[in-house]
Design a binder for these strands. Sequence first.
DNA 1: GTGAAAGCGCTAACAT
DNA 2: ATGTTAGCGCTTTCAC
Lengths: 341, 341
Amino acid sequence: MAVTISDVARAAGVSKGAVSYALNGRPGVSDVTRQRIVEAAKQLGWKPSLRAKGFSSSKAYALGLVVARDLKLLGTDPFFPAFIAGIESTLSEHEYALVLTIATDPDAEERSYRKLVEGGRVDGVILTDMRNDDSRIALLRELKLPAVTLERSDTPSPFTALRTDDTDGITAAVDHLIGLGHTRIAHVGGAQAYVHGRSRRLAWERALSAAGLPADLFADADFTASGGVTATEALLRRPDRPTAIVYANDLMATAGQSFALTHGFTVPGDLSITGFDNAEFAQYLNPPLTTISSDPLRWGRLAAAVLLDQLAGTHDGQDIVLPPPRLLVRGSTGPVRFSTT
Amino acid sequence: MAVTISDVARAAGVSKGAVSYALNGRPGVSDVTRQRIVEAAKQLGWKPSLRAKGFSSSKAYALGLVVARDLKLLGTDPFFPAFIAGIESTLSEHEYALVLTIATDPDAEERSYRKLVEGGRVDGVILTDMRNDDSRIALLRELKLPAVTLERSDTPSPFTALRTDDTDGITAAVDHLIGLGHTRIAHVGGAQAYVHGRSRRLAWERALSAAGLPADLFADADFTASGGVTATEALLRRPDRPTAIVYANDLMATAGQSFALTHGFTVPGDLSITGFDNAEFAQYLNPPLTTISSDPLRWGRLAAAVLLDQLAGTHDGQDIVLPPPRLLVRGSTGPVRFSTT
DNA sequence: GTGAAAGCGCTAACAT
DNA sequence: ATGTTAGCGCTTTCAC
């Protein structure tokens, strides 16, 4: 049997309560007594039982992450692994653990949150892939589960959000293309039900408007490779086809580039292409993909830190704004060759 | 306050113990009493507290997964997300949760396991990325932590392993290339410290030997894109350069293909290429990558199931053998053009 | 300032 | 076969 609080109390000649106070740095014990207790605990090599702590304090000492994504997307998204690593790096400093759940359909998502709460598995959750009109906000409210969200849904939310302007990345991409002489710059959108899907589209529109260019070359897609192909095909079939396409993520850009190349277009000669995410493989395409890079590790670290602060009551509830993503110019973008207008 | 076992006991007019027995389907209560108890529990909407259960039974009702990988690899590996989804699908049926840890350096890995145990976070762990001479085996033994491993390390291990023959996938790839007339078939190896790195290399060697061809075109790498580039460059610089390269994963194959294309080689004209993993992006390369596909979802599901069985004492300890991976022939492989020997 | 003691909600050893 | 009861290891209230 491992050493318990009673052993320490006995060794230090005090009560269990005193030990608890002493070790949690709370008032209720004199400094000398505290010293003695700390000493005894160290001597005995006492490690407070997380289970007992959790039980008596009704805490899980864990945070939850429910990932609701299509497997195909999960597998290629460079965001999640780094994001999770970021979460972990914060949690490991605080004796917290991460409980990960993967939900493959909408119902499973809600069930996941409910189970996490019913089982007392977590003290709070991190919400990613925010959606416009996001049902999770009401759900978590009902469940009284503390949360932090990545980006802000248009659904009013009582939860702290980590935000940035996707805007800046897309804007930089569009401006880069305009600088290369492009005037027919299309956008292949990510699923518009997602906050980041829509904000990227809006950023594209605004950047074009700001330059006095029409934002009429839009093709809706869903962040998947096959969606990217379909959208690209639709755009390239148009008589006023674009000379550049801004994609909402690298996977669609990759698929789109592949489609263009196999249909006789040169990249960037006939068509310039930009992605979003900076997936590892993107720089090994032919040509390597110009893309936009954020800092998922940092997002993860911060998201966990903010949530922990909140649980400890040391966060003021203000949203956190992260630095904007950066444009990485590579071979898939180049000067417009000629205008066919 | 939520309804507890005492409430149910009172309502059913029995002791707490009786309720515990009744609800866990154990002997000790008559069928009539059991009926009454179950009824009362349902009426009151009683959900046994996982925390209390865990506390009194010293169980976590959770499994752990410690991922020790370079972030760059984590982000492009299609294996993990699907594998984790598989684990989840089994766990969610058993009131178990998954605690995920990411270790970015070797020390962190050991610390992770120790923390998981000390905190009583998990009842067992799933080991992936097995290494030859794997230190985790001794560690888990010391920690008395039940485990299941993916593949078997050469370190003798008391843990059940899920196995397959990588062999079959690589063999199929080499045979496919031989069938296309290739005779100088190289291999760009994954880190040889890993079981799957070495087994793929050995499979390549054996397949060539079986066909009476020399296995002398080997370049060591580490599963990373940049490693793939370096290895490819070394191979293509050789006077007896290969007409086909079998890569140990898709990321290296992608990077290698990119290198070859940008250095004037045509694929598959001058060089045929095969990968391993069937990453989503691989079919959107130019040309699309011939690769080898396993079933990570199934691996995950099984790994979790076997471990749970083991915890329940219902597994005989026999290794589980999974079906071999499949070769997916795509555009990156073609007939050898001519021989320059 | 200090310490005793009462839970927290279960499980399991123990009487009956 | 059934029910009683003593913990599990901590936190926290409440006397002292």
